[in-house]
Simulated scan of single mutants.
Amino acid sequence: MTTNGTPPDGTPVEETGPADAEPIVELRGAGKSYGNIRALHGVDLSVRPGRVTCVLGDNGAGKSTLIKIISGLHQHTEGEFLVDGAPVHFNTPREALDRGIATVYQDLATVPLMPVWRNFFLGSELTRGPWPVRRLDIARMKRTADDELRNMGIVLDDLDQPIGTLSGGQRQSVAIARAVHFGARVLILDEPTAALGVKQSGVVLKYIAAARDRGLGVIFITHNPHHAYMVGDHFSVLRLGTMELNAARSEVSLEELTNHMAGGAELAALKHELAQVRGVDVEGLPDADDLQAPVAAASEGTS
């Protein structure tokens, strides 16, 4: 089904992956409390193969807590967390990784002064020869890294260059390709475009789409609704630890998504007051009636 969004190259985006495919990862009424502090409550989320699920929210909305639950860093304290339809309680990120859930954080877990190929295999180096004279299989690691990067459409002239010399978008792309190579079925991307310019953000969005096209379920964490709408198939907006919007791409427009992300309900309530201030243009702010349809969709999606 053709949608209204357009990627950086201007071609129309189409929803990919069967919407009725069985979820790889699913949260049902999930929540997390830290003592008396309820960081997350009643969150429903489904991650299906070949689809990008965008999770949006402002600072303090609960995005980081959600990442920690799915990646195995923290355990949920309410609701259900299922992988392949079976309830799970991960004790460590390694357990999540063993089930095919990989997370690419903003710092990318790379060593800037090490070459690209070495960062690609960081912590999982290939070796050859018998013990105790076993040594790194540098040639095979370079060849494998180059092949995997090219499969994702990433062509680097020199794999021996320090990864710190690459642009931010290129480093993000290497981290995505590394996760795909090591068997990720679900890829969690934590604000991958937050510190990038327009051009480099477009590069990262291109490789997010490439990961989706390879059949991965992608969780794209962002606070930028425009980036999310370029590649997203499903949108979930968190606000103060609860799910404010849970809608498929066909059910929500970019304007509605932006209003929810920006706290449209509060802006609608303040529109009358702001109109009294000289020099403030309130014409573009939403009215309360404009938000009723998305809110209804959210309540249906989370029920």
Rank of each mutant, 00 (worst) to 15 (best):
M1Q: 12
T2Q: 10
T3V: 15
V13I: 14
V13L: 04
E14Y: 09
T16Y: 02
D20T: 11
A21M: 09
E22K: 11
P23F: 12
I24H: 07
L27V: 12
G29C: 02
A30L: 14
A30C: 15
K32H: 15
G35M: 07
I37W: 08
R38D: 14
A39T: 02
H41F: 05
D44N: 14
D44A: 07
L45T: 04
R48T: 11
G50F: 14
R51E: 11
V52E: 06
V55I: 15
V55C: 07
G57Y: 02
D58R: 12
A61D: 00
G62S: 08
S64T: 15
K68W: 04
I70R: 08
S71W: 11
S71A: 15
G72V: 04
L73R: 03
H76G: 10
H76M: 02
F81D: 05
F81A: 05
L82R: 10
L82E: 03
G85M: 13
H89N: 07
H89K: 08
N91D: 09
T92I: 05
P93I: 06
I101C: 07
I101Q: 02
Q106N: 13
D107L: 03
D107T: 05
L108E: 03
A109G: 14
V111H: 06
F120C: 08
P130H: 14
V133G: 04
R134G: 04
R135K: 13
R135F: 12
I138G: 02
I138C: 01
I138T: 13
A139E: 15
R140L: 14
R143A: 15
A145R: 04
L149N: 00
N151R: 11
I154S: 04
L159M: 12
D160I: 06
G168T: 02
G169W: 00
Q170W: 09
A179F: 02
V180Y: 00
G183N: 09
D190P: 02
E191T: 10
L196N: 01
Q200S: 06
Q200W: 03
Y207T: 03
I208F: 01
G215A: 09
G217S: 04
P225Q: 12
M230Q: 09
M230V: 02
M230S: 00
D233A: 04
V237N: 01
V237I: 11
L238D: 00
L238N: 01
L240S: 06
L240K: 09
G241H: 09
E244M: 15
N246D: 15
R249P: 02
S253D: 06
E255S: 13
E256I: 01
E256Y: 04
T258S: 15
T258L: 12
M261G: 04
E273L: 13
A275Q: 12
Q276H: 06
V277T: 12
G279C: 12
G279M: 08
D281K: 05
E283G: 08
E283Q: 07
G284T: 06
L285A: 08
L285Y: 04
P286F: 09
D289P: 02
S299W: 14
E300I: 13
T302I: 12
